[in-house]
Design a protein around this nucleic acid. Structure first.
Lengths: 231, 231
DNA sequence: CGCGTAGTTGAGTCGCATCAAGTGGAGTGG
DNA sequence: CCACTCCACTTGATGCGACTCAACTACGCG
């Protein structure tokens, strides 16, 4: 992956939408390029927020740890998405840990550089505001779900969201295209690993999904939707 | 409340931090001034996002309704805070309903005006980004709480947050200075009215709080903290 | 081939929702 | 000013969804 390709992907990143090509190329040159192999931690909760990241390739999981050691999954990041940026905008420490779930590559800008860029290209600040706003709205919905809905429905919703974000058509249906354990699903939905396992097993029996070790394929999306939406 | 007072408060609003006085006065002149009496709805979930609001006086509750009619409280807004703005930045409909819980006054700018202001004074966009970022981080924490913690602790946390935001020292302790029903607390914490009532009654017996109709006074903050923090 | 990690599945428990009455203070209208 | 009517709140009884505890299985990697 060379610089030219980087700026190609950056041009598509929502954070740099509407910024002209030459500027994006310059922005790309100012970035530091990082790699993280599967399982590697990109940054850790509690570290001072060093840099704003944009994922170029791979998949990254952002998690938060409670004081007593329980984990929750905040979100999965796909190529073109930013992560670790809000802490940079707000100042302070990273509120979560970012871990590569597949071999990944990313670009990063420290707070000072990001500040300069936003000053030079105010469109970046506006884009960032829209992105953060959307995430806040999405999280409000998830919050509402968690507060009001049963586990089975929350799991159905989570799986459908993941499929929309990282679904890949295969002959059996739609495969969620990265390693995803029951534990991960549990941490996304506020359930336990055991409950998730039971529910996925039941769905497998009904032919709604096919699943294996860290792999879930949706065979009948419509069936999941009807669980998620109360039909 | 005249224009001069408005811009006085606006100067203190986080959204306009660092913007110079003359500019704030101009911004204030561009706003439309609205009033809402206790119980009145300022804007409704699903309406097209018309305007970004800053509360001048009073208290406003932002709620979301689930498809099947259950409500959750997203947050309470105090003087100087913005609300209904994210929908304007992102575009689309209001994701929630804003209701005055006491007689309130607010300023509002429509999307076009807000866009102009952010272009003219880029500091506003940067401030907005920081505010929205902070809210996202705060909501992530609440999400984590909701996913991992027991009801009693979530209620303790909610009450302490409210006290920090709207607490008023009185001789008995710290009064949450606006009408707050058990139902509200329930909708903030993902519990039922009944459970909240039971828990508050128990706390009242232990002398941790004093409470009446839509009123809660914290008598021993330390006691609540120790419930909230697992000591 | 063996070990570790992911997943399954059963039994038992319990926190909290649900269902069901009932109390009392605030506001309203006669 | 008093009676009436809500509406916020309380409190008991009951049930169940999901967690907890506890084995056990099996896939994949070194």
């Amino acid at each position: 992956m060379d610089k030219a390709n980087d700026s190609g992907l950056l041009a598509k990143a929502e954070l740099f939408k509407g910024i002209d090509g030459a500027a994006v190329a310059e922005i790309s040159r100012m970035a530091s390029h990082k790699r993280a192999s599967k399982g590697e931690v990109v940054f850790e909760q509690g570290d001072p927020a060093g840099a704003c990241h944009v994922l170029v390739e791979g998949r990254v999981k952002v998690t938060q740890l409670t004081p007593d050691g329980q984990q929750v999954v905040i979100r999965f990041i796909g190529p073109g998405e930013m992560f670790g940026c809000i802490a940079v905008f707000v100042g302070g420490d990273y509120p979560g840990t970012a871990t590569a779930v597949t071999d990944s590559q990313m670009l990063a800008w420290d707070g000072r550089k990001m500040g300069m860029l936003m000053e030079r290209y105010p469109g970046i600040a506006v884009n960032a505001l829209a992105i953060v706003g959307k995430r806040l709205l999405a999280l409000q919905s998830r919050y509402r779900e968690l507060a009001t809905e049963r586990v089975e429905r929350r799991i159905a919703r989570a799986i459908l969201r993941l499929a929309r974000q990282a679904g890949k058509r295969v002959e059996e249906g739609v495969l969620i295209d990265f390693p995803l354990s029951r534990q991960d699903v549990a941490e996304m939905t506020g359930a336990t690993l055991h409950t998730v396992s039971r529910i996925l097993s039941a769905w497998e029996q009904q032919g709604l999904i096919a699943s294996g070790r860290q792999r879930i394929t949706i065979r009948r999306p419509h069936g999941l939707v009807s669980i998620a939406e109360d039909l």
